[in-house]
């Protein structure tokens, strides 16, 4: 089966920049603890701007690039339909509401952050937040293909950063150079076989 071609498929409707802005605004403001499910709901289910297959392809692109994944996704969707105007509209819509709320929360924190009750509450939320991130990492780990080949690299990165205190950019770039070279080699072998 050929890979889905983004430019040639037919979807239900084509958004304007304004529609992109308001659509992604809803996504940003609904996204407690993870925005991606809401982005999928908007793009595939509610508005039908993308087919499910197209969404997966786009998400794949946005997740293998660095940077905030869902901002990347808003840019990719926006640029597809409305060029750079659409990219700005999508990203701005996604970020504006949460940005303003974060500003407000930051101001409140500057004012009341020293109160013992607030600190105890944030302490509890920190632990839950750490747990949610660990759970995300584990879920991502289970989705890694050929896990016995690649898990040792994940483990090495983990140990390097947490126990050996290696600088993160060096770990990421050095490690990624090795893993990408390895997967390139494995793909070449598969192509020959």
């Amino acid at each position: 089966m050929p890979a889905p071609q983004i430019s040639e498929s037919v979807t239900k409707s084509t958004p304007t920049p304004a529609a992109l802005f308001f659509g992604f605004s809803r996504v940003g403001l609904s996204g407690f603890g993870g925005v991606l499910p809401w982005a999928r709901r908007l793009l595939v289910e509610t508005e039908g701007w993308l087919t499910a297959e197209e969404f997966n392809v786009l998400l794949g692109l946005c997740q293998f690039l660095p940077g905030p994944n869902v901002v990347n996704l808003a840019v990719a969707v926006g640029v597809r339909f409305c060029g750079w105007y659409g990219a700005v509209a999508g990203a701005l819509g996604l970020m504006l509401g949460p940005f303003l709320i974060a500003l407000l929360l930051g101001l409140l924190y500057d004012k009341y952050g020293e109160l013992p009750a607030i600190q105890s509450m944030l302490h509890g939320i920190t632990l839950v937040g750490a747990g949610l991130i660990i759970a995300t990492g584990l879920r991502m780990g289970l989705n890694v293909k050929n896990r016995w080949v690649y898990w040792p690299f994940a483990a090495a990165a983990f140990v390097g950063i947490t126990l050996l205190h290696w600088p993160l950019p060096a770990v990421m770039l050095g490690g990624a150079a090795l893993t990408i070279a390895l997967s390139w080699y494995r793909l070449s072998q598969e192509a020959k076989a």
Partner: peptide, 21 residues
């Protein structure tokens, strides 16, 4: 190759973030 190679590094980084916090 990039897609396959970057994924395990991201796993290591995300887990390290959670553990350090």
């Amino acid at each position: 190759a990039i897609q396959l190679g970057v994924a395990p590094m991201a796993v290591g980084l995300v887990l390290a973030s959670g553990a350090l916090i």
